[in-house]
């Protein structure tokens, strides 16, 4: 089974596209995911995903009115709506400073409601299932191109503003004294995140985007000793789950998002258990040494 996967991987165009998309998403998701985790915004990807789904449902609705362009490329409106969702979250976060999670609930509910309405209004619904759980095996070359541009922009932003991004994420209050315009930063970060979430939607599906961003980081945090090492370890875990997930999706014909996330969670469990066993051994060793 694995051999046929490898041969197909390099012979079939769709497999190569899936591999390229997976590889790039495997870097993008935990790179931004680590900032999301530090800023305690783990639910944000879910929220943005729901708003991105509004864009997709609106695209399908428009295409049923005769604008077929939107049916072929629903991701454009997905990105625009996700950015709108991100700005809405930031707006509500400022209105409820001490209860920031309220903003997510408002936006996620609005997103779910609007998506349902437009999906119902659209006569051609495409594959709703595909948008909920992801289908990396069916991605088109235009999608690969889109991920590549996103990865490029995000990498440039991280190279140029990485210091500031990390400083604000760890401590918003002190960032002011570094001459960082925190308000502006938050809006730029939200836009960047909204775009990445919409791009992830195709491969991971609305319901599993946040898992792709957060779970590899959660596992990386268990063994990382610094910010850099944690991010690198998270990216390795993420790539591993994309690759194995791709194989599972292909051989078992299951949705790619579900396969990738299952592997992600397996890695997290293995890491957590191994760490616990090592710690327990260390404690018994210390106890034994004390007894002697």
């Amino acid at each position: 089974m694995f051999l046929s996967f490898i041969t197909d991987l390099f012979q079939q165009d769709f497999m190569l596209r899936a591999l390229a998309a997976g590889f790039m998403l495997g870097i993008l998701a935990p790179l931004l995911g680590s900032i999301v985790v530090v800023r305690r915004l783990s639910f944000i990807a879910d929220t943005l995903g729901h708003f991105s789904l509004v864009g997709i449902s609106v695209s399908l609705f428009l295409s049923s009115l005769g604008f077929s362009y939107f049916f072929e490329k629903p991701l454009y409106l997905g990105i625009i709506f996700s950015v709108i969702g991100g700005l809405l979250i930031e707006f509500f976060r400022r209105a409820y400073t001490n209860y920031k999670e309220i903003s997510m609930v408002i936006v996620i509910s609005l997103g779910a409601a609007l998506s349902a309405i437009f999906f119902a209004l659209a006569s051609k619904t495409g594959s709703l299932y595909q948008y909920l759980f992801g289908s990396i095996l069916t991605v088109t070359s235009y999608y690969i191109y889109l991920i590549f541009i996103t990865l490029f922009i995000v990498s440039v932003l991280f190279i140029v503003f990485g210091k500031q991004i990390i400083a604000v994420s760890f401590d918003e209050t002190s960032a002011k004294f570094l001459g960082i315009n925190v308000g502006l930063f938050q809006i730029i970060f939200m836009i960047m995140l909204s775009i990445v979430v919409s791009v992830l939607l195709e491969a991971a599906g609305v319901l599993l985007i946040s898992s792709m961003m957060v779970i590899p980081v959660a596992a990386g945090m268990r063994i990382g000793w610094s910010y850099k090492s944690t991010t690198i370890i998270s990216i390795i875990f993420s790539e591993l789950s994309v690759l194995v997930g791709l194989w599972m999706a292909y051989s078992l014909t299951i949705p790619s998002g579900a396969a990738i996330v299952s592997i992600n969670i397996s890695i997290l469990l293995i890491v957590a258990l191994t760490k616990k066993i090592i710690n327990m051994r260390r404690i018994t060793k210390i106890d034994n040494a004390k007894l002697k």
């Binding site: 800023r39 990485g162 210091k163 400083a167 760890f170 002190s174 990382g224 944690t230």
Partner: peptide, 18 residues
Amino acid sequence: NFNYEFPITVLELLNVSS
């Protein structure tokens, strides 16, 4: 105000704060 559960070394923190 500081999110100190995520791994970051003293030097890394000072580097991003300068």
